[in-house]
Design a protein around this nucleic acid. Sequence first.
DNA 1: CTATGTACGATTCGACAAGTCGTATATTAA
DNA 2: TTAATATACGACTTGTCGAATCGTACATAG
Lengths: 155, 155
Amino acid sequence: MKISKKTDYALRALFTLVQQYSQGRPISIGQLARRNDVPKRFLERIMLEMKVKGWVTSVMGKQGGYVLAKSPEEITVGQVIRHFDGVLSPIGCVSVHQYERCNQEVACRFRRLFLEVRNHTTGLMDAATLARVNDGKPVQPEEVYSMDLIGGAGI
Amino acid sequence: MKISKKTDYALRALFTLVQQYSQGRPISIGQLARRNDVPKRFLERIMLEMKVKGWVTSVMGKQGGYVLAKSPEEITVGQVIRHFDGVLSPIGCVSVHQYERCNQEVACRFRRLFLEVRNHTTGLMDAATLARVNDGKPVQPEEVYSMDLIGGAGI
DNA sequence: CTATGTACGATTCGACAAGTCGTATATTAA
DNA sequence: TTAATATACGACTTGTCGAATCGTACATAG
Ligand code: SF4
Ligand code: SF4
């Protein structure tokens, strides 16, 4: 499951809105774009999609902008990824929403591996509400490399 | 991390070779293609890449074909995916082999989520030798849906 | 010496990610 | 009232990549 820029940008904007949530004042597209390093016109598209989804609302006119439409506990990262990137499964034969049949299924040995990945990933993503994730700490540089010294393989 | 057809085809062929490994006789491209439902000319390309990688060897001439070049314990699914699809990370900022810097890293809240996915995925994939995976059972139809009844979200 | 195989560069074809543009419309401060 | 500041939204561009196909050269067992 590859995360597209679009999804990444959407999440950046959402978390900015979460952090502004208590304050109640809307943030303009311009501000969102600048603070998160996203092309403004592109972000416009993205916010529009999220508005249709009911995650944000917009306030028009001067002093207008965007506000989170739901409480941060009600939106999960999984929902966002699923909307923009379509699917969390690494391959069609273990997907529910976009299942693709494969005639090798009955004999396939490695399908189980993908199923395990999918189960773990969805578990994590669907438990990740904006509220919970926002309370976590940013990743420290060393953490990125931690696994690789063990496996020797990397990434 | 999306699994491409190419990777999937490569794995199908490899596991066929694993199952033939004890026998020592080569299998022709034609047979591999038919048994695994892969376009023949396309598989040709793929086998060639795997030969360069040292995973398989080819025997030319009549009665020729392909044989596994290493023992099934020495090849992991992780290696195969990494070769054909480049990367196991869901996003560049948590990748080691193809790290892409992002200027939001120091403040980013959801990066940790992707790091966790990456860690679990690589752990699984790098522990999955062809031998070990080949000894597992195929997935039963119900298993695909198991998670979704809990999370309510699917995939 | 030919049937049956692999070797390999070149090429096609379509889909999709990422981003841009132009213009219409809404709201409010001055 | 109107200028300034917003969002709304369809159309368009551009590049990359997955997936696959072709043509032809070469190897060797029988
Ligand atoms: S070969 Fe196995 S993993 Fe690949 S699509 Fe078919 S069932 Fe799924
Ligand atoms: S915004 Fe966060 S998750 Fe996205 S690329 Fe930057 S650091 Fe990684």
